[in-house]
Nucleic acid binder design. Structure first.
Length: 574
DNA sequence: GCTTAGACTTGTCGGTAAAGGG
DNA sequence: CCCTTTACCGACAAGTCTAAGC
């Protein structure tokens, strides 16, 4: 319980895979120190606004109208988005127009009173063309990345994740966001706080400007921050996932999840017994935890107003579930239908224990549809409780734990030694997919899905025809060889056999590809791969089954998981 | 205790570079 | 070799969770 800096333990893990009971209490060196020295060049600002050429004209009520620089820039934000469906939304238009008018001069405001009378089409066309010519400025870009993309943390040169200040534009948000279309203002150096170490070279603000503040706080990991004007939330410049700082944190996250594995049986027994508690609060806690564990629901914090209406477990409302005593031949079914993070729909019909079902019925009694299902608890209470069961345990650890466990189990079930590498990769993707489904990681079906599916179909058909042809030719060659054996005819048979075999392999590969594609239509694998699956499971599996790690992790992923690739041997168990 | 601020992780999307097929 | 398709990567929004403040 007294390990503070965990970094020195990383090398030990190279030699032994051990669950380090007691280490989960994350880099909480009692003072919360995250680094000793930090030096960087500050954030990179977006380019200044470039005024429109005179031949690109904005019209109001059909008349040319010359906008001032400030309002012209905002007009270009809207003009650039004209292709998007959301510019047709009433909320978007209203928010944009309000904010735009606020930035106008008195004279502009007198004229421009209705968005419907604004004609941005020339501006729109201008930017469509401009996008074409914007191609190769790679050399300057590279130099900027070199200059601003790296920092020194405790003497190591580390990649920065997002070193650019976010450019101004119109806020979109996800789902039905009440603030969509609002103006996201340009950030000035005067808005930015710089964080670096005391003796380090302080980055120079742009010519004629000053930083809002320069501080030396080594209890946080960010290099620069500002407050965005839409929700008033802070934004940070932080390190890339490949950095040591982020890597160690990631490792700790998975160690906590592994630690849950050791305790989960007793925790499950506990929340099951809570279903019969005489206290309503405990019952709600027990059922909520059950959902979080079984269905991998998110915790569900309370949200601010002025955001999209989305929920997680604790914020579920009565209207989000329907109880079916019997459904599709199953007893005690709960039907979930709600919008979760990023307004992604969660829809699921789940048979539950009778006791859970009865409890839910109780929780819903005498409530309106928009009342909270779990009215006696919230995430703070839940997490406080979890922390008493196990140090470091919070609601989201269940997601990590269940995701990683599922991957490992599925890999064990589906991988067979006689598989080709391609088949093993498909097996991996399927295991990955099982996790993505559990975590409800969805994506919109790719726009070109049907088309590319058809294309594959045709390819398979062609390949089959080729195989038929090859078979016939092989037969002929064999006959010829039987009738008049010679070296030449023998070689021909061998050659034809080889061709057929190759074609059959190609066909198999295509069919695998198709299966994979179909099953992946609306499932996003990336999020779970990056955030929920202990990379050591994957590394061990690759080693054990002789699958090159490059087939599973691309370059970015290999960089992020360098610690795991480094330390894991094939015996690792989550 | 409860609320709010702050810091950090998780999430989807869209543009662009790179790969692949005709 | 060119064009299309796919994979990758950055952008930035939206969550979780802790702790500061009252």
């Amino acid at each position: 319980f007294f390990f503070c800096d965990l970094s020195h333990l990383l090398p030990i893990l190279k030699y032994k895979s051990v669950v380090y009971v007691g280490l989960w209490e994350e880099g909480k060196s009692s003072d919360g120190q995250k680094w000793t020295t930090l030096e960087h060049n500050g954030p990179l600002f977006p380019p200044e606004y470039e005024p429109l050429p005179n031949n690109v004209v904005f019209y109001y009520s059909g008349e040319a109208f010359k906008l001032g620089l400030a309002s012209e820039e905002i007009a270009t934000f809207y003009a650039k988005m004209l292709d998007h469906e959301y510019t047709t939304k009433e909320v978007f238009q209203k928010n944009f127009f309000n904010d735009w008018r606020e930035e106008m001069t008195e004279d502009e405001r007198k004229v421009i009173k209705k968005l419907s009378k604004c004609n941005f089409s020339e501006l729109h066309a201008y930017f469509v063309n401009k996008a074409e010519e914007k191609k190769n400025m790679t050399k300057e870009e590279k130099q900027l990345t070199e200059q601003y993309g790296f920092c020194f943390l405790d003497g190591h040169r580390e990649k920065i994740g997002n070193f650019r200040v976010e450019p101004p534009g119109l806020f979109r948000g996800r789902g039905e966001h009440p603030k969509m279309g609002k103006l996201k203002k340009r950030i000035q150096p005067e808005d930015i706080t710089i964080n670096c170490s005391k003796g380090s070279r302080i980055p120079g603000p742009p010519q004629g400007h000053k930083w809002r503040k320069v501080q030396h706080d080594n209890t946080v990991t960010w290099l620069a921050s500002w407050v965005e004007n839409i929700q008033g939330h802070p934004k940070y410049i932080m390190l890339n996932p490949s950095s040591k700082l982020k890597g160690e944190k990631d490792w700790q996250k998975y160690e906590t999840a592994r630690n849950l594995k050791l305790r989960v049986d007793s925790i499950r027994r506990q929340y099951q017994s809570d279903w019969s508690s005489h206290e309503m609060r405990n019952r709600q806690r027990g059922v909520a935890l059950y959902f979080i564990d079984k269905l991998a629901l998110r915790a569900g914090n309370e949200k601010e107003d002025d955001t999209a209406d989305t929920v997680g477990c604790c914020s579920l409302r009565v209207e989000h579930i329907t109880l079916h005593k019997e459904l599709d031949g199953k007893e005690w079914v709960v039907e979930f239908d709600f919008l979760g993070k990023d307004s992604i729909r969660y829809y699921n019909k789940v048979p539950v224990e009778k006791r859970v079902f009865k409890n839910l019925k109780l929780f819903m009694e005498n409530k309106d549809p928009d009342d909270d299902l779990f009215d006696r608890i919230n995430t703070t209470y839940l997490n406080k409780n979890l922390n008493e069961s196990m140090a470091g345990l919070t609601a989201k650890v269940f997601r990590t734990f269940n995701a990683s466990t599922t991957l490992q189990d599925q890999l064990n079930i589906m991988t067979k030694e006689d598989m080709t590498v391609e088949e093993k990769i498909l097996a991996y993707n399927r295991a990955n997919r099982a996790v993505a489904i559990l975590c409800n990681h969805q994506r919109a079906a790719p726009k070109t899905f049907e088309k590319s599916m058809q294309l594959l179909q045709e390819k398979i058909k062609k390949k089959k025809e080729q195989i038929e042809l090859a078979k016939r030719e092989l037969k002929e060659a064999k006959n010829a060889h039987r009738e008049r054996p010679s070296d030449k005819s023998k070689n021909l048979v061998a050659k034809k056999e080889k061709v057929l075999k190759r074609l059959q392999e190609q066909l198999k590969k295509l069919q695998l590809q198709m299966t994979d594609k179909e099953e992946n239509k609306v499932i996003a694998l990336g999020t779970s791969k990056l955030n929920y699956l202990d990379p050591r499971i994957t590394v061990a599996w690759c080693k054990k089954h002789k699958v090159p790690i490059e087939k599973i992790y691309n370059k970015t992923q290999r960089d992020k998981f360098a610690w795991a690739i480094d330390m894991t041997d094939e015996d690792f168990e989550f």
